[in-house]
Design a protein around this nucleic acid. Structure first.
Lengths: 187, 187
DNA sequence: AGGCGATTTTGACTTTTGTCAAAATTCGAT
DNA sequence: ATCGAATTTTGACAAAAGTCAAAATCGCCT
């Protein structure tokens, strides 16, 4: 999906507003394994994924690499808490393929809030969606078995299934990789 | 904690604004086991818990009663998605003790948004806090064992520990009640 | 105080999931 | 095409968590 389409469809920006928005976003390319954001940094930009995929992750107590989200084409990338409150990010965001992004800096985004009222809605909606997803996610850990979580993952992200390696999926659904392999083995 | 204190401390309402707010909230009492909100209803009020405790829950596929949150004194109760978007609630909220609440209706709350700018902040902050908590919660399911989740629960909610029955805690941390009992048994 | 229902614990057992290591396979770079 | 590294699968076993049922305990009500 194209960025302008994404926004225009839902928020009916005027041509002028759309123009202003598009001028504010600049392209950025990342190679696979480059960081968009490192844990501890303050997130000072928002990215829209045009091409490729990223993931966010952190290291748990035992030093395991734990994936918390995937950002395929069409995703908006932002470490909300860090961005909004200027706090160090708790997770890193890293390209897992070569990436084409459109990005906007914190300062410029703040200006857009002033210039284009719809941007407040866009961000509010984004926060709502992420919040809903997190509630959903917590619930699925709460009541589903490992096999059921994998099944749900397949349903919710059929596209990711062939693109990201199993280790990332395993940690994302909170299952050991060997266990996940066995879950897949039986049908 | 008193309601006015709660709000005044953080948002510095003017005496006038505080007054307006306090006038908008009316007391409500519930008995243990009464519903504040039933799954499927549209949440059309916000409650502030002055006394007692409530919990939210839903029934999973197998019909098990799954607790998703506790609301002790000082909590604001609101089914966000339902309240904001006028959608049927996905969970019920029920008193587990006799309750004293202060409540405000949807319409009146909308008016407060207009009359008192700080109320936008209050609700935004509340949404942020809940969002952060959910992220935290998902993470703890993702990387912690049942015993570790129980330990964390004890740390995070020492007050609830003696007040709510084990079954609620068990489902809240996603553990079978017999297993939880055994976890507690060893130290 | 006694009794009853609800809650919690315990026992015996099963199933699920994790661990560690090795084998198989896939994939990219040359 | 081939080598080597990374990924995935598999095996053998251990630990964690669930199930079902019974026993013990707790709390209230009269």
């Amino acid at each position: 999906m194209k960025f302008d389409q994404h926004i225009i469809d839902k928020y009916h920006l005027t041509p002028k507003e759309l123009n202003l928005t598009m001028q504010s976003y600049v392209p950025l390319q990342l190679k696979s394994n480059d960081y968009f954001l490192q844990e501890g940094q303050i997130c000072d930009r928002i990215g829209f994924v045009k091409k490729g995929m990223l993931r966010s992750f952190f290291y748990d107590e035992q030093g395991n690499d734990i994936t918390t989200a995937f950002y395929p084409e069409g995703s908006l990338i932002i470490a909300f808490e860090s961005f909004n409150n200027r706090l160090p990010a708790k997770e890193s965001i890293k390209a897992i393929e070569n990436i084409e992004l459109m990005i906007i800096r914190y300062e410029r985004q703040k200006e857009l809030y002033q210039l284009i009222p719809a941007w407040n809605h866009i961000c509010k909606d984004l926060a709502d969606v992420m919040s809903r997803e997190m509630i959903e996610r917590a619930k699925s850990f709460q009541v589903l078995s490992a096999a059921e979580r994998y099944k749900k993952f397949c349903k919710d992200h059929p596209d990711l299934l062939q693109r990201v390696n199993l280790g990332y999926i395993a940690s994302y659904i909170g299952v050991d990789i060997a266990t996940l392999s066995r879950i897949r083995a039986k049908r």
